[in-house]
Amino acid sequence: MRPGVLIFWLLAVPMVACALLVITSRNPLRSALFLVAHMLLLAGMFLSLSAQYVAAVQVVVYAGAIMVLFVFVIMLLNLGGAQKMDAAGLGWALGIAMSLGLAALFVGTGVWKSGLHAGKATAKTLAQGGTAQAVGFALFDPELPWLFPFEVASIVLLMAAVGAIVLAKRKL
């Protein structure tokens, strides 16, 4: 089989496995670590999609900062050990049934394939696709619609920082 296909399966199967382990672990710390692994595999997936810059951002920000924050809080609240059983009985069964139903719906009706707009990718766009230069040129180009959302994102981060401090600082 072609190397691209091999890489896809080599990444996809552990990704699904890690995600399943996140939701089935009794220990929140283990869940967090499996999620870190999942995100690193996802970064690998981004690399295979020629999105090099996004892969780097995924590792640095998502796996590296966000998940670290999760682990910090888990240890701060002393949740490192095994927890009680989660929503046992009816609630659990209902939740599993609902998500299995949703999965069956998605996969069965072909949400993931039918309706996909025809692609216009060329070898050229693929070659220059995901480098920091290409992303940067597109992001800061005033003729393209992504400069404004980028600036708004900075305000979103400001809001998040202020909000987090207001809620969590001991003496305000």
Binding site: P149, V152, V156, V162, L167
Partner: peptide
């Protein structure tokens, strides 16, 4: 942009 606005608004409301 709609999503960004939604998140910006919602973060404030959560806090």
């Amino acid at each position: 942009v709609l999503f960004l606005g939604l998140e910006l608004m919602s973060f404030g409301l959560y806090v």
